[in-house]
Design a protein around this nucleic acid. Sequence first.
DNA 1: CGGATCTTTGACTCGTCTCAATGCGCGTGG
DNA 2: CCACGCGCATTGAGACGAGTCAAAGATCCG
Lengths: 247, 247
Amino acid sequence: MGANFTLERQNVRPVAVGNHALLRDLPGDGAVRPGDGIGSLERLAGLMHFKRNQMIFSESDPAAQVYRVQSGCVRLTRLTPDGRRQITSFLHAGDWFGFEWFSVYGVNAEAVSDVCVQSVPRRVLDRLIREDAHVAGYFHELLASRFAQAQDQLMVLGRHTARERVAGFLLSLANRLSAGGGMLELAMGRQDIADHLGLTIETVCRVLHDLRKQRLVSVPDIHRLGILNAEGLATLVEGAAMQAEAA
Amino acid sequence: MGANFTLERQNVRPVAVGNHALLRDLPGDGAVRPGDGIGSLERLAGLMHFKRNQMIFSESDPAAQVYRVQSGCVRLTRLTPDGRRQITSFLHAGDWFGFEWFSVYGVNAEAVSDVCVQSVPRRVLDRLIREDAHVAGYFHELLASRFAQAQDQLMVLGRHTARERVAGFLLSLANRLSAGGGMLELAMGRQDIADHLGLTIETVCRVLHDLRKQRLVSVPDIHRLGILNAEGLATLVEGAAMQAEAA
DNA sequence: CGGATCTTTGACTCGTCTCAATGCGCGTGG
DNA sequence: CCACGCGCATTGAGACGAGTCAAAGATCCG
C-alpha cells in the first residue's frame, strides 16, 4: 500500500526568474490599489520555475507564500509516518494553492511536470483581502470550491470501487482540461494517479487495461489517453453496478 | 458496501420552537449591529428541534439557512445513486453547518440523536459578513478548518486500514468531546461509524471487538466506550504497522 | 410481552494488494 | 550509433483484508 516515493524532500531551491525576490523587500505594498481586485495580485506576483518532481513547499513550512500555477501540473500530497502517500489534488494552469492554510502549509506541493508558478507573499494577499471585499469574496469562493472538491473526493475514496475511481478521475481530468472528445495529457504518472485514488499502481494499470479492452478509452502512449466513450465511463462512475464486461 | 439506509428522505418537517419563523419575514435585519460580531448572529438565531434520524436539510435544497448545533449530534451525508452512503462529518454542540455551500447544500444533514439547533437565514449571515470584517474572518477560518478536516479524512479513507480508521475515529471523538481519560458517548450507531470511515458495519464491529480484546478500549454498553489506552490507540493510527496482536 | 431495529459473530467470497518477473522508453556514455 | 542502465509501466500468480450473506443475540419502545 502507498508509495514509498523516492523523492523525499530534495530541497533543491527553485530558480526565481521573476520579481519575487524584489517584492519581498519592497515598500511597494502600497502599489496595491484597493478595488483593483485580483488584477493587482497577479501584477504583484513573482514567477518561479520548478523542474519535474521538485518540491515547491513542504507541509511543515510556514505558509509565507501563496501560489498560482501558470503552466504545468502540481500535486499536493500528504504522507503517513511510514511513507504511505495521499495526493489530495492535482493543480493545473490558473489554480491557486497554498492559500488554504494559515500558519503552516498542511500539504507538500511538488511539480508533477516542469512547471511555472506565480507567487505572492501571504502578507500581501492578507492585506488585499482586508482592503478589497472583492478579493476577499474571490478567495472565499475559491476555498469553498476547494472544500467541495474535497467532499467529492471523500465519496470517491470512501465508497467507490477501483474501476469507478479511475473512470471518474479520467472524466474529471477531461473536464478540467476541457479536452472535449479528444486526447488527454496525463502529466502525472501511474503512481501519482494511484496515490490520488487510494489504489496501488498495479490496480491502476489493470483498470486502464480493462477500460482499453472495453474500448472506453485508448492509450496511444503512456502520457496520452483518449476518451472513446464518455457516456460509458460516466455510467461506470455512477454506481450503476455495470454488467458489460466482455471485450 | 454502503448503507442502503432506510431513512430515505422522510420529509417530516421540524417543529420550529424558536423565533425562526418570525425572523424570515422580519424587516429586522437592521437589528444586526455591525461590529457586534458573532454575538448578534447568535441572538438572531431561531431554535429548532429535530428527532433522531429526522432530516434537517437535503443536499439538493437551496442553502437558505445556516445552522449551529446547540445540543445533540448531526451527521452530514452524501449518497450515490445506488444508495452507498458517505458521512462526511459528525457535528456536535457549537459546530456551525450549512454555511460551506453557496447555492445548494451539497450534503444531507440529519439528526443522529435528538438535537437542538439554531438557525440563521443565509441572507442575514451574508449581510453580517459584508458589514463586519470580524464575522467574515470568523467564517473564513471556520471554512478553512472544515477544509483541513476534510483533508485529514482523505488521508484516512485513502490510505488507512480498518483498524487505523476506527482507532483514529475514537481518538478524534474523545478529543472533540474532551473526554479525558473517561467514557465516550457514542451518539451514532455502528452503521454511521462505518459510513463515516468507508467500512461496513460488520468490520466496525469486528475491529471494536479486537480493540476490546486487546484492552485498548472498553465497551460497557453500545453507546458508551471507554478509552483504556490512548497511547496504544495512537500507535495504531500512526501506521507503525503494529505487531502486538494477541489477547 | 412482542416486534422492530440494531449489533454481533461466523463462514465464505472477492476485490484489491503484494511480490515478482518482464517489458518499454529514454538518456548517457562508450 | 548502439549498448547499457535506470525508472516507470505492465502483467501474472497468489495472499489477505475487508465485504457479503446469514443467523443469532441485544436493545429499544410501544
